[in-house]
């Protein structure tokens, strides 16, 4: 039993390094998508102290809208544009209808409101688009669908081109976001808001504008994630589950840390895959990906309550 836990998995890794690479690659692809979603959370949390549970359903909603529009005969890239428009409308609506009346309420109330939004969007999405699984319009968007083969150490490593595309697009999006946050006035305002609400407001930044903007960015992230994940697993409400994965990423990386979200996302993506393949499936009956990330984050936090990248908290009275 002990050898099966402590020795055999590592022996397997060494024995078939090409397979190990394959597993890590798969983990990396998931991880970068987790990181993207976590980034959406962080942006919204930093600028409004809202723990946005609707991030997951926004992914589904964006993907459904895109596929739905295309099914109605709209050309693929026009659909993308229209979907972005819909996500912008959603951001405005959420700001107007939900956030503005609830300004200043306790965190948990705002959190609940985002769960309310989640349910609303689930219902609405099912009514408009139906609940059945749909196929992402991968080819129509010009995303390559072939795969690239490598033969390291005489083994075999398969990289799907759509995954490579996803990684590249996600990385570009992250870079663009970082540039936006660091180099533009609006971006700096968002970061300032995270550090000190009152101070940020006192230098004349409109909260409403920022909120709409931040939710719109979250919407863009949702669309990219939706396309990338939809290309791998189809578009359905089950997609929402991947958004839950962003939560342990946030625990590890911190609710307010942008770099934490990225590093945490990649770490969790790869570790959960490794665990599932080398420990979960042989020893635990598989499907450990549903909980592994949470338990990992929980254990890390038990020893480092400030998260992996946070500073030690000095409590004051």
């Amino acid at each position: 039993m002990l050898t099966e836990i402590f020795i055999k998995p590592f022996a397997d890794m060494v024995e078939a390094p090409d397979f190990l690479l394959q597993v890590l690659w798969e983990g990396l692809v998931s991880g970068i998508l987790y990181a993207l979603i976590a980034l959406g959370f962080v942006l919204i949390y930093r600028s409004s102290r809202i723990f946005n549970f609707a991030q997951g359903i926004m992914v589904v909603f964006a993907a459904l809208t895109l596929v739905g529009l295309h099914a109605m005969g709209v050309p693929a890239w026009v659909s993308v544009g229209l979907t972005l428009l819909v996500m912008f409308g959603l951001a405005v609506a959420i700001e107007r209808v939900v956030l503005r009346p609830l300004v200043g309420q306790p965190d948990i109330i705002l959190f609940m409101a985002t769960i309310g939004v989640t349910l609303f969007l689930i219902g609405l999405g099912e009514i408009i688009f139906g609940g059945e699984n749909k196929v992402m319009i991968t080819e129509e968007l010009g995303i390559p669908t072939g795969s690239i083969l490598f033969e390291p150490w005489g083994g075999l490593l398969i990289l799907e081109q759509k995954d490579i595309t996803a990684v590249i697009v996600a990385a570009l999006l992250v870079v663009a976001l970082l540039l936006f946050l660091n180099k533009t006035r609006m971006g700096r305002a968002i970061r300032a808001l995270g550090d000190d609400h009152q101070a940020a407001l006192s230098v004349g930044i409109s909260l409403q504008t920022i909120w709409v903007l931040v939710w719109f960015i979250a919407g863009i992230i949702a669309l990219v994630t939706g396309i990338a994940w939809g290309a791998r697993a189809g578009v359905s409400f089950a997609l929402e589950v991947i958004a839950y994965k962003a939560l342990p990423v946030l625990m590890l990386g911190g609710l307010e840390s942008i770099s934490g979200a990225i590093i945490g996302g990649l770490m969790i993506g790869m570790l959960e895959k490794l665990f599932e393949i080398y420990w979960g499936q042989p020893l635990l009956g598989g499907n450990t990906e549903t909980w592994f990330a949470f338990v990992l984050a929980l254990i890390v936090l038990l020893f480092r309550p400030q998260g992996l990248f946070g500073e030690k908290i000095i409590e004051r009275v």
Partner: peptide, 24 residues
């Protein structure tokens, strides 16, 4: 009946937001 179910989910979501706004 599936439509009723969807409307239900939507209404519950809307009501949650509504109630939170009128009396948190």
């Amino acid at each position: 009946s599936s439509m009723v179910e969807h409307i239900n989910v939507m209404m519950v979501g809307g009501l949650i937001v509504f109630f939170l706004i009128i009396e948190p």
